[in-house]
Design a protein around this nucleic acid. Structure first.
Lengths: 355, 355
DNA sequence: TTGAAAAACTGGAACGATCCAAATACTCAT
DNA sequence: ATGAGTATTTGGATCGTTCCAGTTTTTCAA
């Protein structure tokens, strides 16, 4: 392996010289054309190995308009829920021969704008965005107008005509409420999450509709917005219990909030489940290991990620924007945090990955 | 905003024409040179905005040997511990004007090799790798030889002459053992983690040394390797307790294993802390919210990430490889899982992010 | 053997920026 | 007004690949 120590890069011209062919032939070999004689191909490949040649994708992209890199912009990689989304996306792109690059915005729209600009400058063939909170609805118009396929994942952007892949938030909330009602709860609260969040809006809608269908008055149901954190959850519960007609159960904005609610309950000597029904949303990995294991709405973030990638791929293939909305199925995973017997069969769905 | 609907891209030549200057001048403006007259600059910028010009970094990189993209290759983004590392790295690079791209290998060395190749083809200016389990020690030699700055994060590669940023695994294990001994434990086990893992080897070394210093025989201490998962932890504990001289406390390979150990303890009616001392390693976000809150060794993964980025930056700047090893400080965070009073002051260090 | 078709190869001209040396336009003291 | 000195601007050449329109070589039926 005659590796050069220095940094002067080897180009196809040198490969061509070494193999005694023209650079055009080397190029042909590189892209696996069958118009080149097998023997020549071998000779070229040998030279490539010999000289430690590294393909320069930048130069290639310059000539051919298309590129094989796609971007994914994630609002919070630190949150396992979104990390899973990213992994699902990555997997699909990879098997399609694209190189996915991930960037994190940390929920910062300014940072997000920078990252989008950067991705464009790199010439991405497509982009999946899980938008940061507070993203203006025209944040992606430039891309869209330039013909770059974009799809939103997890969070819709109200007012933007962009494809999206999101879980069925309304139906999820409905499933949760139905379960709670089935268990005999009449005073059900909706706890946690920022009031201006689109996702929260959707979940709240399903919540209200289900309540109404059960003959309960959505207007009278407690609805407390807080930060979507454990602390926020705990605060929401405290606040809920001081109400004149305190709830006996709650649908939480997400699992993290639900953990906070459980924590606060236990601090008051109440047992989540028997004493107060708690249902989360998302089914993060932690949910199954929590104490008590959390009953929640599973959304299959990895599957949604794969779906989003497929949509981008389709648009790249078609060469034109396609606006469509995919709403991912959700289902109720019954564990122990909302009382009632844990249904046996369902528990199969729990996951322990991280091998 | 006269945005074009079509995809024909605008180049500096067209900007030049629109602004009535040469392409060279546009280039100067683009890179913020002060050799151009302010008035001209404004005219050019106006044209740029007008025509919706997008800088083509690929073309630029072709001409100027250097690129502003750096790569980070992470073994498991789904694991919050590594996700934090990634975020720390990203932050440092960003503020230095580099564009960090993240790729996930899912602990798969084959996938890792592909990703490395891809990154090279993109012409990364530097690379941070948190290697997948089973990475051959020569996996990065090609890069290194080509003069691309590389630093390893979190996991060393035995036998490779590459800079690395890792936590002080030995000292962490020692701190844990010392605490356990201080609490009166004499039979202490080391539980979980794959036997062939480098990290485990280091932690085990510290464990053994501390034991010896305390006058205990490391040879007699139970050392059980399992998968670094909750299930693995639970299995390790079960196995440990069936031993003829069962331990009264354990240092776990990492927090996840520790969670499994706690789970198994409770299943047997034992209380982690009073009945059996459990110490974890890493201090993942979950640790503080676990039941009971986990005593563990904090490693500051985000800080290590920042440090790794700085090292790469330094090498880029210097234009030559620098091999150095940074061992990050660790400290013991005392909570409730190993008995004894929770020291008050320490608890300050707990974190709740995810705003 | 010959010539037409097929197979294998090749030499520029792009692609969109940067860099450099040199040209041109100003300024201002004389 | 003049020339030196400074401030701006500019036209190729260039980076490493792909594409195109051939050219050369091979194959093989007549």
């Amino acid at each position: 392996m005659a590796q050069r120590k220095a940094k002067e890069k080897v180009t196809i011209i040198e490969i061509a010289a070494a193999a005694g062919v023209s650079k055009s032939t080397v190029s042909l070999v590189l892209k696996g054309s069958d118009a080149v004689h097998p023997e020549t191909r071998d000779r070229v490949n040998a030279a490539i190995r010999e000289l430690g040649y590294v393909y320069n994708r930048g130069a290639a992209n310059l000539r051919q308009a298309r590129s094989n890199i796609v971007g994914m912009i994630i609002n919070d990689l630190t949150n396992p829920f979104f990390a899973e989304l990213a992994v699902g996306i990555e997997r699909s792109f990879q098997s399609a021969g694209y190189v996915p690059f991930i960037a994190n915005t940390a929920e910062n729209p300014v940072r997000q704008a920078e990252v989008i600009k950067l991705m464009r400058e790199q010439g991405v063939a497509g982009l999946i965005v899980s938008p940061a909170r507070g993203t203006p609805s025209d944040a992606l118009d430039g891309l869209q107008a330039a013909g770059v396929p974009v799809v939103l994942a997890m969070r819709r952007l109200p007012g933007a005509r962009i494809s999206s892949v999101v879980p069925d938030n309304r139906r999820g909330a409905r499933l949760a409420v139905e379960r709670l009602v089935e268990l005999g709860h009449r005073r059900i609260a909706f706890l946690g999450g920022y009031a201006d969040s689109v996702v929260r809006g959707e979940r709240l809608e399903g919540f209200g509709a289900a309540l109404a269908d059960a003959g309960l008055d959505p207007e009278r149901a407690l609805n407390i917005a807080t930060a979507p954190t454990r602390d926020g959850g705990a605060a929401a519960l405290e606040s809920a219990l001081t109400h004149r007609e305190p709830p006996t159960a709650a649908l939480c904005f997400n699992d993290i909030v639900a953990f906070g609610v459980c924590l606060a309950l236990r601090r008051r000597g109440l047992q989540p489940g028997p004493d107060f029904g708690v249902i989360g949303f998302d089914d993060v990995q932690e949910a199954v290991h929590a104490d008590p294991p959390l009953t929640t709405i599973a959304v299959d973030s990895m599957g949604l990620g794969e779906r989003a990638a497929q949509m981008v791929l389709k648009m790249i293939e078609a060469g034109r924007p396609i606006v469509e909305e995919h709403v991912g199925a959700v289902h109720l995973v019954i564990r122990e945090s909302c009382g009632g017997p844990a249904r046996q069969g369902m528990e199969k769905r729990t996951r322990e990955r991280r091998a």
